[in-house]
């Protein structure tokens, strides 16, 4: 089971990194989501892998699983969820304002003109 979990985390992280490096905002959002999934599973695995054990105190239990990583994962899921929602809204706003969905996209023609103009003036002075 350890190998399977490790492989899963590895594949998700690699996919996430690849997608995060893409040039358009939507793959970047997906990549960050995958990275968040990977880290959630990773955090979960850091409490060691146990099957069929309770996390809260139970008189009849033979052993326990570590409850702390489960609490951490819950917190991390909520935060990642909120951040992803924010990022999607921001990406849509950028799509609307910049005129394209490139992460490092060109601005609209007006901005480019003023920028090159100031560059030329800067070079002259």
């Amino acid at each position: 089971m350890e190998a399977l979990i490790a492989l899963t985390i590895g594949v998700m992280t690699a996919t996430g990194v690849y997608l995060t490096l893409r040039a358009r905002t939507f793959p970047v959002v997906l990549g960050l989501t995958l990275l968040a999934y990977a880290v959630n599973v990773f955090l979960f695995a850091m409490g060691r892998l146990t099957i069929g054990q309770p996390a809260v105190i139970d008189a009849a239990a033979a052993g326990y699983t570590d409850p702390l990583p489960q609490a951490l994962v819950l917190t991390a899921i909520v935060i990642a969820f909120g951040m992803t929602a924010f990022l999607i809204v921001l990406a849509l706003k950028a799509r609307g304002e910049l005129g394209n969905d490139h992460v490092d996209g060109l601005h609209q023609a007006k901005d480019e003109q003023t920028q090159t103009k100031s560059n030329q003036q800067g070079a002259k002075s």
């Binding site: 905002t25 951040m83 924010f86 921001l90 950028a94 601005h107």
Partner: peptide
């Protein structure tokens, strides 16, 4: 627009 673009970079790198 420039602010939105800079903001997008800032958010992604911090995530």
């Amino acid at each position: 627009r420039l602010r939105t673009k800079a903001g997008l970079h800032y958010v992604v790198i911090n995530l």
